[in-house]
């Protein structure tokens, strides 16, 4: 494994009960890149993200084969602390889920949980995270209003900021702009381009143009299989597999 490989997936399959929903995936995520994942509905994109932070463990009857190494550490090793792992990999869900509390408390969730009390420290963490998430300017005067009162795009950036406050090294995004208008989408994409310098990002999207716009490399999933992965420009102009070509031309999915 070379030094710039951050996540290494080898022969990884995910089962829910008896059904195999991810089929022997082999792929690497490089440090400080944005890896885009595209594919039709139910192709296993979300399942893959939830395999990375072991959120699939919460599903009854789920199990796996193969290995995933993050920073060289096998994350499914029995000795691994799942809680610490999840703090390393922040996740943004398809629908924004602000908790029913103030903007401030949403962002401070992780810090409070860790027992951080001091107001100045909390203020600092909240401000930094909101700035990184690109939301600070819009909400700095109303941190005490409910997170539910924000617009969809703002809510999604709030969720991003909430993750950044936990100081992860990776950001997993599951169709973060699927319900948003073009302007909100653009703002999130801007944030991602900025964040790439500090974080390694896996971006699942059902909007192929989005992958073309922001991803360094792109992977195409189909029915739980990795069809191909490569530089974004290549995938979009000269894919090796005809199925990729068909998908990008809108022939299915």
């Amino acid at each position: 494994m070379t030094n710039d490989t951050a996540i290494e997936v080898r022969g990884f399959s995910q089962y829910f009960g008896e059904v195999r929903k991810l089929k022997a995936l082999d792929l690497d995520v490089k440090r400080n890149e944005i890896l885009g994942i595209i594919g039709p509905a139910r192709s296993g994109k979300s399942t893959f993200l939830c395999a990375l932070n072991r959120l699939n463990d919460l599903v009854r009857g789920s199990h796996h084969e193969g290995t995933i190494r993050i920073d060289g550490c096998d994350i499914y090793d029995p000795g691994v602390d799942v809680v610490a792992l999840r703090r390393q990999l922040g996740m943004v869900f398809a629908t924004p889920v602000p908790l029913p509390r103030s903007i401030f408390e949403n962002v401070a969730f992780g810090a409070r949980r860790e027992g951080i009390r001091g107001r100045t420290r909390l203020d600092g963490i909240v401000r930094d995270s909101l700035e990184k998430g690109g939301l600070w300017e819009e909400v700095k005067d109303r941190l005490e209003t409910s997170g539910l009162k924000l617009s969809g795009g703002q809510q999604q950036r709030l969720c991003l900021a909430r993750i950044l406050a936990v100081a992860p090294e990776y950001i997993l995004l599951d169709e973060p702009t699927s319900g948003l208008d073009p302007i909100s989408t653009m703002k999130i994409e801007e944030s991602l381009r900025r964040l790439k310098k500090e974080y390694t990002i896996v971006l699942v999207t059902n909007n192929t143009k989005q992958a073309a716009r922001v991803a360094d490399r792109t992977a195409f999933f189909l029915n739980g299989e990795l069809v191909e992965i490569g530089m974004t420009a290549k995938i979009f102009t000269a894919p090796d597999d005809t199925r990729t070509d068909d998908y990008l031309r809108g022939r299915f999915g």
């Binding site: 550490c73 000795g79 691994v80 602390d81 799942v82 809680v83 610490a84 090294e169």
Partner: peptide
């Protein structure tokens, strides 16, 4: 990630 520190914290939380 610092593997050993991680494990110690984890075991306590799990317990």
């Amino acid at each position: 990630m610092d593997g050993t520190a991680k494990k110690r914290v984890g075991n306590k939380l799990e317990r």
